[in-house]
């Protein structure tokens, strides 16, 4: 069994003696996984990351990161992780290269090694041309790529990504996902990320946990979570209203549930794309024609809404958080 990179036991953080930001969280992440923490704003994602990266001390409970205790061996934890914060933390007045070298120095990496790694990373995130330009001239996507490169300069076993594509446009977001995948292929690190973009979790995570009010509500691979909702929904219309085909359809392999509504059959199936052709085939063998077919695959959105509820959230962000968010969004679009 591969070693656990993160093991959290009853991890809890209480602010001001009453607000439970993280509430008895138990979590295990295996080496090589890309793990996503999904949840609405204020669900406890950032507090969770801050505790695991040793910025905040938990109120109770423990966690081990890369085999080290986050309270007693904080220095060792920090040495084995890389963190890419939600905010753009690169220094605007310095060049991209200077920023990476600064990160390297903070990890105590000797300067010859640092330079070699910096150029290697700049090449991977395609910032070689811009390396000697000041960061204030960078676009949002470039800044994000620079942050990724900084996070990887110490060759961490575990990389934390806090909302890696917040505020980016769709094209840039997809590009950033590709960079993350490419970096992971190259360095093989485990990734712990938070996001509230569901398609992002779907695109890059092996496993996701849905967190709300400080509690993990559901955990599993994106596919497991989606099929947990009952699978894909296929709707067909058949050109006969005399026969009831319900029993016939139910016998097809992979079909979980069939409901008839007039000439419309609503079929729930584990793997819709395999069941649909079988349904058409079964109709045709009886001389019937499927006149209309539609298939809905449940998205992570529905899973998410199923667990976190559909009610609107009253935003409870401090002025400081709002300012930070505004700055991040501003730079992302810059």
């Amino acid at each position: 069994m591969p070693p656990k990179v993160v093991e959290a036991h009853n991890l809890t953080k209480i602010f001001n003696k009453k607000v439970k930001a993280v509430d008895n969280v138990n979590l295990e992440i295996e080496q090589g996984e890309t793990f996503g923490l999904l949840g609405p704003n204020g669900a406890g994602k950032s507090t969770m990351i801050n505790m695991l990266t040793t910025i905040l001390k938990p109120s109770s409970g423990t966690a081990k990161v890369c085999g080290y205790d986050i309270i007693r061996e904080a220095a060792e934890v920090r040495r084995s992780i890389g963190v890419v914060h939600q905010e753009y933390t690169a220094d605007e007045d310095l060049t991209g290269l200077d920023n990476i070298l600064l990160c390297a120095a903070l990890y105590g990496i000797p300067s010859s090694t640092a330079k070699q790694r910096a150029w290697e990373l700049l090449e991977l995130v395609e910032l070689k041309e811009a390396a000697k330009r000041k960061v204030e001239t960078y676009s949002g996507g470039m800044r994000r790529r620079l942050e990724l490169a900084c996070g990887l300069i110490s060759r961490p076993t575990l990389l934390f990504l806090d909302e890696p594509t917040l505020g980016l446009d769709v094209q840039t977001r997809v590009a950033v996902w590709n960079y993350i995948k490419r970096l992971k292929e190259e360095y093989g690190m485990t990734i712990f990320m938070t996001t509230h973009y569901l398609e992002e979790a779907d695109a890059i995570c092996d496993r996701v946990a849905i967190i709300d009010h400080g509690k993990i509500l559901k955990i599993g691979s994106p596919n497991e979570l989606k099929s947990g909702l009952g699978g894909d929904i296929i709707e067909i219309s058949v050109n006969t209203d005399k026969l009831d085909l319900t029993t016939l359809i139910r016998e097809i392999k992979g079909v979980k549930e069939v409901k008839k509504a007039d000439a419309l059959y609503r079929i729930k199936a584990e793997r819709g794309e395999e069941v649909a052709p079988a349904v058409i085939e079964a109709m045709r063998s009886r001389g019937l024609t499927v006149s209309k077919l539609s298939m809905i695959k449940p998205t992570l959105d529905e899973v998410y809404l199923e667990y976190t509820g559909r009610s609107l959230r009253a935003e409870q962000a401090s002025e400081e958080e709002m300012m930070a968010l505004r700055r991040t969004l501003h730079k992302a679009r810059g």
Binding site: T54, I55, R78, I81, V83, D91, L106, E320, M323, A324
Partner: peptide
């Protein structure tokens, strides 16, 4: 602190 640089430094072994 406001720009997040301090948090970044705090998550390194410094």
């Amino acid at each position: 602190r406001r720009l997040g640089f301090l948090d970044k430094v705090l998550s390194t072994p410094v």
